[in-house]
């Protein structure tokens, strides 16, 4: 446990010692702020319209602002996750510090989990920025906070799974850029897989659609915790971390 924390702390420190973390936070804050501003703008103009027409339709903040924004976040995450995970092992290999880690009395799994945890925590910090925007909704309206919380849980689970895969990809190369590009490709594929479900009913299409990370997030965005989706993310996380462990082991054999 102590070893995991040692690695995790060092990793977080590296994120914040370089411009990586600040760049990600700033980029995310700007993009997400724009999304939020738009969503609120649409909401306001829609409410004005319905007022002018003399109809007072019930307007739902959760349904009209929070849910679509959480769905957007899920997709933006696909673009940011490669930038978070790409350096984890590639950089250690390039700098030669992998030799320090692998010859220290810590288990491979402790190194892997420590690094993965740091990546998840950085992603958590990104999500905290989105929560800052939502505070305004609570200040001027009465959205339901419970489905929102479930949405965040879903985002974290999704990020955990993709970061685990990114960590694995990072062990396969010394070059951060290659690791990042490959992870980005995988993330993108895992998003668009759901499209086949639109025109194909065969078993292979169902499997492909099932692999789509974004479609598993949809229930979460509505505030529904479906065990089958949670299990999907958790399985993917374990798979990614397991592959990372195997890859580190093969690194020892080949290196």
């Amino acid at each position: 446990m102590r070893n995991i924390w040692t690695i995790c702390r060092k990793e977080l420190k590296s994120y914040f010692a370089s411009p990586v973390a600040y760049l990600l936070l700033a980029m995310f804050a700007i993009i997400w702020g724009f999304f939020f501003w738009n969503a609120v703008g649409i909401f306001v103009s829609f409410s004005m319209q319905s007022q002018m027409m003399g109809r007072s339709m019930p307007m739902d903040l959760n349904e009209m602002i929070i849910r679509p924004l959480l769905m957007n976040t899920s997709v933006i995450g696909l673009f940011l996750i490669p930038m978070i995970s790409m350096r984890l092992f590639a950089e250690e290999k390039r700098q030669g510090t992998a030799e320090l880690l692998l010859t220290s009395p810590v288990r491979d799994m402790e190194i892997i989990i420590g690094k993965w945890l740091a990546a998840v925590m950085l992603y958590g910090a990104l999500l905290a920025i989105t929560a800052l925007n939502f505070i305004w909704l609570f200040a001027y309206g009465k959205p339901d906070w419970k489905p929102m919380l479930v949405g965040y849980l879903g985002l974290l689970l999704q990020a955990g799974a993709l970061l685990a895969i990114g960590t694995f990809i990072s062990t396969t190369t010394k070059n951060q850029i290659i690791a990042g590009a490959a992870t980005f490709g995988v993330c993108l594929l895992l998003w668009v897989f759901e499209w086949v479900a639109g025109y194909e009913q065969a078993a292979w299409a169902k499997v492909m659609a099932y692999m789509s990370v974004v479609s598993h997030f949809e229930p979460f965005s509505k505030g529904v915790i479906d065990t089958k989706d949670a299990i999907f993310y958790i399985t993917l996380t374990f798979f990614g971390l397991f592959m990372t462990a195997r890859s580190l082991e093969s690194l020892r054999w080949r290196a």
């Binding site: 590296s14 700098q95 992998a98």
Partner: peptide, 23 residues
């Protein structure tokens, strides 16, 4: 190792503390 396994973004003291914990 042949190339010292150092983290360029760390201070010397911080680095040695990290290795101490790691060991």
């Amino acid at each position: 190792p042949e190339t010292p396994p150092l983290y360029p973004e760390m201070e010397v003291e911080e680095y040695l503390t990290f290795v101490g914990r790691l060991k």
